[in-house]
Amino acid sequence: MENLLEVDSLATDIGQFHILTGVSFTVPEQQITVLLGRNGAGKTTTLRTMMGYLPPRSGQVRLRGESLQSVPTWQIVRKGVGYVPEDANIFANLSVAENLSLSLPGRHHRNSSNLALTQVQEQFPDLREHWQKPAGVLSGGQRQMLAIACVLVGGPAVMLIDEPSKGLSPLFVERLGDVLLTLQGSTTILLVEQNFYLASRVGQQYVLMDDGKTVAAGPMHELLAALDLQQRYLGIRILSEEMNIP
């Protein structure tokens, strides 16, 4: 199993604040790696630094061994790193079809573009119904689906998805999980997620962050068994302790 992305000793400042102080992990190919941690642990900053929106103070991000240092965001995307931001991840003023076509290559690739759009319609039937409507009329869940579809049509080597379940109803979180599971095994994903249920359902690898640095990483089943890590870094209380069950 080859590592597609490598993050090595990443440190990032925002203004005078040291937000990331030592983030290191790898993202194996064709697996879903979940980046976990409490609020303020630095997960979103890690993704924004990886995408080139924030300049790192030190450290490296490598895609298939190639450094992404000083590469502008749009070129990082063209090299194959798709990014679904946490908020404002669609263009509400554009139609669903326009949102998707913005992610497609130019008209020289019209056949492959049409194929990609057809696949999106099959994979996201909700979007097909609203194809020509402004994306602003979509529900929160449909917006997340559109945001993910927008990145998928570009055919990325790896997708960075920032907390897609935020603000969604349990039903949509379930459907989101289903969509992510269909991508499991075919697409490489680095998923930032607060919802531990969703994270453990779709994730095959985990990376745990706390206070701007990585504190643990490994296969998801190991984290599921490590109750102390869950308690210490994710604030997940152990039911048996709460209820004084011997």
């Binding site: 929106y53 749009w74 995307v77 990014y83 931001p85 326009e98 913005l102 927008c150 570009g154």
Partner: peptide, 16 residues
């Protein structure tokens, strides 16, 4: 039209 709404997101679509 996309850039008017959100230039940062246009970058995330691979557009300079």
């Amino acid at each position: 039209r996309a850039g008017v709404a959100n230039p940062d997101l246009v970058l995330a679509r691979g557009v300079p």
